[in-house]
């Protein structure tokens, strides 16, 4: 925990203070990480989001048809996706895929003395390794979430269009009408916060690995579990703040 706080402080320093002392972050490593963390996760995100969209629409149809309220199916798909399922499920994918990979990569670097070598070359590991991954995650998780939302909405549309009596225009209009911008923004804020949690937990786990390959494995598993728990608890808190306190 102490290490985790220290990592966060040091991250804040490198992002908000160091640039003003002339130590800018380099762009190329950030893009490399964006591809790795974000772009390569896109197919999995798409598949997940589509399945969730389809599932939501089917469940909505099941419940709402008995009330004769099929016309609200798009509303339900849209709001559930934007506010909850989109940010949470896509964070789950990114934790499983990219968070674990980052923890394992940094952990391997730790046990093979690469981190120590960086320090001895007077290169700060937080600046060199964590900052690009952090910024990449902070951009890519919200971006993936927007992307996932689109795909999820398409999933809902597929059910409505082909299994129920909606036409495309009706579905799109209904969906757009139901959501306001706050539904989108709240989801974006959530996913930015999740990005912070996921990447700092992964990096912290990696940088503090001890005990060889076995240690890397344990740290990777631990980072996935911790990130999932922290993310879900934070989600509950944020939902409480955004939608339950007013």
């Amino acid at each position: 925990m102490k290490n985790y706080l220290r990592l966060n402080l040091s991250l804040l320093y490198w992002i908000f203070i160091a640039p003003f002392t002339g130590q800018f972050f380099k762009v190329a490593p950030i893009f490399r990480q964006m591809v790795f963390i974000g772009v390569r996760a896109a197919p999995m995100v798409a598949l997940t989001a589509f399945s969730v969209g389809v599932t939501l629409a089917m469940q909505a149809a099941h419940s709402l048809q008995s009330l004769g309220a099929e016309m609200y199916i798009p509303d339900l798909v849209m709001l559930t996706l934007l506010r909850e399922m989109g940010p949470v499920l896509i964070a789950v994918i990114v934790i499983g895929r990219s968070g674990s990979a980052v923890a394992a990569e940094l952990g391997t670097m730790k046990v093979s003395e690469e981190i120590e070598a960086l320090e001895v070359m007077a290169i700060n590991p937080v600046q060199y390794l964590v900052v690009p991954r952090f910024l990449a995650m902070l951009v890519m998780l919200p971006a993936l979430t927007i992307f996932g939302n689109y795909i999820g909405i398409m999933g809902g549309w597929a059910v409505c269009r082909f299994a129920l009596d909606f036409n495309t225009a009706g579905y799109v209009l209904r969906a757009l009408e139901s959501a306001d911008t706050w539904d989108l923004y709240s989801g974006m804020i959530k996913s930015a916060v999740f990005a912070w949690i996921v990447i700092t937990i992964a990096c912290n786990a990696g940088l503090n690995v001890e005990g060889g390959a076995e240690g890397v494995g344990q740290a990777t598993t631990a980072s996935v579990v911790q990130a999932l728990l922290a993310m879900l608890v934070t989600n509950a808190v944020l939902t409480g703040i955004f939608f339950f306190s007013a």
Binding site: M109, E114, A117, E119, V120, M121, A122, N124
Partner: peptide, 22 residues
């Protein structure tokens, strides 16, 4: 950490394993 970085710029170190960035 800050102060020691200044000293570290003046020496080089070869690690037993090489410690190259993979």
């Amino acid at each position: 950490e800050r102060e020691i970085e200044r000293v570290r710029l003046r020496f080089g170190m070869l690690f037993q394993s090489g410690a190259l960035l993979a």
